[in-house]
């Protein structure tokens, strides 16, 4: 099981820049998704007139399913500056890969719950770390795409774009850099030093 929880309004509102598409995923039964809170927040976000479509679908973590489901919205999506995804981390990463020329952001943090995790035999993984970093890293997850789960940049162990731990694995931070360079968003990396919070996520 896992829980997706909305990021704070302060974190999400600045991401709604230019023409924005919102994608909701109401897929897995194993995921608790805060539907009502999401609708409320999306209504607020839409009040500035920037949101050009709200798309609610299921299983966006499946790339084939995602491309079929987004087909009829493609014209609108191509015109968009930003896509804001309300889903678990796998969903956000799948959308970010599919729409690789558009800024894709996560509106949720994903937390783990003990029990069955759902079936996503796919290319992306979500660490369910509870403080989603995808908004800083071009939609490439530093927790699962980096062997050391580094959140402040590349280590010295990458050779020819491959990880020191597994020569068949691309260096996650090189992927992040290339993606942000492509989006002309390299300045995103100039964030203040990040420190992970391993404290119990359920204790408020």
């Amino acid at each position: 099981m896992l829980i997706t929880q909305l990021k704070s309004k302060d974190a999400i509102a600045p991401l709604v820049k230019g023409k924005t598409i919102i994608i909701n995923c109401h897929g897995c039964k194993e995921v608790y998704f805060p539907e009502h809170e999401a609708i409320e927040m999306q209504n607020e976000l839409s009040s500035n007139g920037n949101v050009s479509a709200v798309i609610t679908r299921d299983y966006i973590c499946n790339p084939d399913n995602l491309s079929l489901q987004l087909k009829k919205y493609l014209d609108k999506i191509k015109e968009a500056d930003t896509v804001l995804v309300f889903s678990c981390g796998v969903g956000v990463q799948t959308v970010a890969k599919y729409l690789e020329d558009i800024e894709v952001y996560s509106a949720c943090d994903t937390y783990p719950l003990p029990g069955f995790q759902g079936v996503t035999p796919l290319e992306f993984d979500c660490g369910q770390c509870g403080e989603c970093y995808l908004n800083y890293t071009g939609g490439v997850c530093p927790i699962t795409a980096c062997s050391k789960s580094l959140i402040n940049g590349q280590c010295g162990g990458s050779k020819n774009g491959k990880c020191e731990v597994d020569k068949d694995m691309d260096c996650g931070w090189e992927r992040i850099y290339i993606k942000l360079e492509k989006l002309k968003k390299l300045d995103t990396l100039k964030y203040p030093t990040k420190i992970r919070n391993y404290g119990n996520p359920y204790v408020e």
Partner: peptide, 17 residues
Amino acid sequence: SDSVDVQLAKMEAKVKA
């Protein structure tokens, strides 16, 4: 490094820290 720009970004983060 063969990815020297990525290293420079990290260097900048270290200087700032």
